[in-house]
C-alpha cells in the first residue's frame, strides 16, 4: 500500500499563524528606513520582505507579534501597535 508520509516543500504556508497575535503587531512607518535589512534577517517567521528604503513590511498572515523587528530597527521605523488598533 502507499509509501511513507512525506510533505511537499513549503507547504507550511497553508498554516496561517497570524491569528496567534493577541496583544500587538508591528507597524512599518516607512519614513526613515535605511534598508539595513536587519528586520528581515531576524524575523523568526520569515514573514518580513522588502527591497530598498521604506519598502519593508510584514505579512499579517504569519506574524506572531513577537516584536523583535521593532526592537532591532536602528531607525525606530517600526513600532508595535495594539493588535486591534486601526492604524
Amino acid at each position: 500500500m502507499f509509501g511513507p508520509l512525506t510533505c511537499k516543500p513549503g507547504s507550511s504556508r497553508n498554516n496561517k499563524t497570524g491569528p496567534w497575535r493577541t496583544e500587538s503587531r508591528p507597524k512599518f512607518l516607512k519614513k526613515n528606513c535605511i534598508a539595513c535589512n536587519m528586520c528581515l534577517l531576524i524575523c523568526p517567521e520569515s514573514c518580513i520582505s522588502g527591497e530598498g528604503k521604506n519598502t519593508y513590511d510584514f505579512d499579517p498572515d504569519y506574524c506572531k507579534g513577537c516584536g523583535n523587528c521593532a526592537r532591532i530597527c536602528p531607525k525606530q521605523d517600526i513600532e508595535m501597535v495594539k493588535e486591534d488598533s486601526k492604524e
Binding site: 516543500p9 504556508r13 523568526p44 517567521e45 498572515d61 506572531k64 516584536g67
Partner: peptide, 25 residues
C-alpha cells in the same frame, strides 16, 4: 513560494531563536 527555504507557517513559539537561526542557515 517565497524566496526563503524555511517558510512561514511553522508552529514555533513567538520570538523563537531556533526558527530564526534555521532560516539563516
Amino acid at each position: 513560494m517565497s524566496k526563503t527555504l524555511f517558510n512561514s507557517g511553522h508552529t514555533a513559539c513567538a520570538g523563537c531563536g531556533q526558527s530564526l537561526a534555521a532560516r539563516l542557515v
